[in-house]
């Protein structure tokens, strides 16, 4: 490390990270933006799958329960990298088969769309488990009371179950967000230019490996620490009713 800094010099290290083209700053930030967009999309898709999956696992019929059990078990037992490859090829092939069926030309899926779809399906399995646990933590009396008042299931979910489970779901969901930001790095292996891939391109071109990987590490850390702060505020908000109970007001 010391020899590297002295050989390249601290000023040239800053030149490499500069915004405009001799520097690679803009490339890294563009990669970071791609990472955030994909993480956000995949997280949202995962949450959507997770909400339906969790309700299905708890209140669904026997077939729905078993199919969901197979889905969560399979996805959680196979490495994300392998799943990404399988889903990437499968999703591309499926889309092209459908296009061919309707007489269109095959297309190459955009990296962002495929990345969101693939990571979203993976996230969905984990979200299902987190949300299922959170729904189970809602006191049964609350749900029974809602039913006794004649609430239809969707209204019951919207007004009673989902708000009450938020507090216990947030820590697990925060972990999942951190996981998905880091899992976007796996798309680098498929060749998609997010932060890790952009970094490796910059590092391979300039041979300044430490500079760029450290810089990317700092960007990832800022992302994870920053979202940690956001999630702790969300958790405070989700627990706003509970504090009063705790204080015994």
């Amino acid at each position: 490390m010391l020899t590297l800094i002295t050989s390249t010099g601290a000023s040239s290290m800053l030149d490499l990270l500069a915004w405009s083209p001799p520097g690679w700053g803009a490339t890294l930030v563009q990669g970071l933006l791609n990472t955030i967009v994909i993480a956000f999309g995949a997280y949202a898709l995962g949450l959507l799958i997770g909400v339906f999956g969790a309700f299905g696992k708890l209140y669904g019929g026997p077939i729905v329960k078993d199919v969901l059990a197979v889905y969560t078990t399979l996805v959680r037992a196979v490495p994300e990298l392998v799943l990404i490859l399988i889903l990437y090829f499968a999703v591309t092939d499926a889309v092209n088969e459908i296009l061919k069926f309707y007489g269109y030309d095959p297309i190459q899926l955009s990296g962002v769309g495929a990345g969101i779809a693939v990571l979203g399906i993976v996230q969905g399995a984990y979200s299902t488990e987190v949300l299922r646990g959170a729904i189970q933590s809602v006191p049964a009396g609350q749900i029974e009371a809602g039913r006794a008042m004649g609430m239809p299931p969707t209204l019951l979910a919207r007004r009673i179950t989902l708000p009450l489970m938020m507090a216990s779901a947030i820590p697990g969901l925060a972990n999942l967000w951190l996981t998905v930001t880091k899992d976007t790095a796996l798309l680098a292996v498929v060749g998609f230019i997010e932060l890790t891939k952009a970094t490796s391109l910059a590092a391979a071109t300039t041979k300044a490996f430490f500079t760029f990987y450290m810089a990317a590490g700092v960007l990832y850390l800022i992302l994870s620490l920053g979202s940690g702060l956001v999630f702790s505020r969300i958790e405070k908000w989700a627990r706003r009713g509970q504090r009063n109970i705790g204080r015994g007001s």
């Binding site: 880091k182 890790t196 970094t199 490996f209 990987y213 450290m214 990317a216 590490g217 990832y220």
Partner: peptide, 21 residues
């Protein structure tokens, strides 16, 4: 730091960074 950065990045930092050093 370990939990906040992707394993792939750590791996490439060690392999390419130390490997070039």
């Amino acid at each position: 730091v370990i939990r906040g950065t992707p394993l792939l990045l750590q791996l490439w930092l060690l392999y390419f960074g130390l490997g070039s050093l």
